[in-house]
Design a protein around this nucleic acid. Structure first.
Lengths: 325, 325
DNA sequence: TTGAAAGCGCTACCAA
DNA sequence: TTGGTAGCGCTTTCAA
């Protein structure tokens, strides 16, 4: 049996309701008493029983995170950040990797204060009980809970526009052209730029990759570089693809940005891994995280929240891009 | 307020202790009564309050998983498998990505039935309260809780021995030669084979990679294939490295296994992605998972458990290896 | 400033 | 086979 407040009360010679107050740092307890109780609690290795506490106080200070697809690196970075920020707000984060429906059930049984769902499928999830839900995914349907989405199309659109403005007329996009909705949005932004600039389609090229690994970017870029009319700028759909493309460019003895400018779609700003930091476009991870925390706190406190939150991308240009004449 | 057993009791016209029994499918309740109660519970969207339940029954049917490093793919596969198997045993899995110490605190406050820790650092963790701990990591020290480890050294040793027996005299190892303890063990097994076979060291080559991605394997293999005396067999430290090596081999117009035999260290058996399935060596993932569940159930039921569980690797040979003369 | 006591939702025991 | 009730560990009144 673990230590309870009654054990502390007995040991400290006070009533257990006083112990409860002292542990919550209530102003109703005198400093010496409080100190004594704290000391005893520490010595006994007391850990509060969350079950009992949330049973009476109706608050668990816990956020349930539903994360059925644990392999994506972007998500793992984002979740790590969110976890850290919630910790600072003295919230505990618990993750379930079960499918959305059963994870929701689990968390509602655990009476968490809110549930954060990461789900790229477009299904509307329905809540059990009255635990508020916040979702990360595609904000296309009308949902009864807030959905946080990022504007991928605008990101690639912005990047292509920028490269055009810098004088580039042969721009290639490396990405999953036939991929899921998320990937298609990126392609769409690129295509939209072509259309608006009234350029011949051959001056904009899309290279399809099947995976998002460094090697796929490498292969795709290799292919581009052997072209008679090779691109002066490359836009990649992800960070790893960009890394691969960089390798291919170096192997061909070309230099960045003199021979080729490169921008990567990504949510991590300032990728300083390389000799030349990579230009990126996308919604910065910390802004997504910040927004998520904000929405979570709002739903927990029963405040009004818009149900579609569409975050705007930012273009961060470094020395990996240059003007050409 | 969510619905409680009292709401169900009122609605069904029975006492709430009967409801409690019915919901737990107790034989003490008559079938018709049970059916009625179930129907009402369903209709009302009842979800049991785990806090209240575990407060009285001292059992939460929940396993806390401590997973501070969420990026590793092997772990995510393993945890997914474990999660699934626990679900079938009607246990709920909750994951924390906080650092070990604070995660342990969280789970002990939640009164989980057991905590599963994934930690490759060699620190001994000390439990709060009396929640039993099972660890996945390096079984080198004496610990007060069971640690499950896999024999990496024996794996690469076995593979090298096998390749030798098949007539190979020029064998290369691609892996993180300067890496952490886990990686070094793999290298050690390879070196041990050289030693025991009393071979000149030049006939066994180690190629160092900095990362474990496909591209790194590709680069390393490229390097090997340009050698005057190129290896007849390659052993890689991971699946992704093997994939890269395969790419390099194909690009060089060499064939597997006729020109080069290849074995990968890995815990996933039967990697059928390729034209030729890859030979692997390592402890199969499902065996690790099975063992983990077994140990978890034992500690939960207070049974005796050995504190060092060292799992033996298996060599699975496919057409990616051949005998040479 | 402290203590006593009610009650959160549930299980488990005993009585009916 | 059902109902009544004590009590899990805690917070939160209210009384002392």
């Amino acid at each position: 049996m673990s230590v309870t407040i009654k054990d502390i009360a007995k040991s400290a010679g006070v009533s257990y309701s006083t112990v409860s107050k002292a542990l919550r740092d209530s102003p109703l307890v005198k400093k010496p008493t409080k100190d004594l109780i704290m000391a005893v609690a520490n010595e006994l290795g007391y850990q509060p029983n969350i079950a009992a506490r949330s049973l009476v106080s109706k608050k668990s200070f816990t956020i349930g995170v539903v994360w059925p697809t644990i392999e994506q690196t972007v998500l793992s970075k984002l979740i790590t950040t969110i976890n850290k920020e919630l910790e600072e707000l003295s919230y505990t984060t618990l993750i379930s990797i079960n499918e959305v429906k059963s994870a929701l059930k689990i968390f509602s049984r655990y009476q968490v204060d809110a549930i954060l769902v990461f789900d790229s499928s477009q299904s509307i999830v329905s809540s059990y009980s009255d635990v508020p839900i916040v979702m990360h995914g595609l904000a296309n349907k009308q949902t009864p809970y807030p959905v946080i989405d990022v504007n991928r199309q605008k990101a690639t659109y912005q990047a292509a526009q920028y490269l055009y403005k810098m004088g580039h007329r042969y721009i290639s996009y490396i990405g999953d052209v036939e991929g899921d909705k998320l990937q298609k949005e990126k392609v769409k932004g690129f295509e939209q730029a072509i259309l608006e600039l009234e350029l011949p389609t051959y001056s904009f090229q899309k290279i399809r990759v099947n995976n998002f690994e460094q090697y796929d970017g490498y292969e795709a870029a290799k292919q581009l570089l052997t072209l008679a009319k090779r691109p002066t700028a490359i836009l990649t759909g992800s960070y790893d693809l960009a890394r691969g493309a960089l390798q291919a460019i170096y192997e061909s003895n070309l230099s960045i940005p003199n021979d080729i400018s490169i921008i990567s779609y990504d949510n991590f700003p300032a990728l300083e891994h390389f000799d030349i930091p990579l230009s990126t476009v996308g919604v910065p991870l910390d802004k997504i995280s910040e927004k998520t925390i904000e929405i979570l706190m709002k739903v927990i406190n029963d405040e009004e929240v818009e149900t579609k939150i569409f975050m705007e991308p930012e273009l961060k240009i470094t020395n990996s891009c240059t003007k050409i004449s």
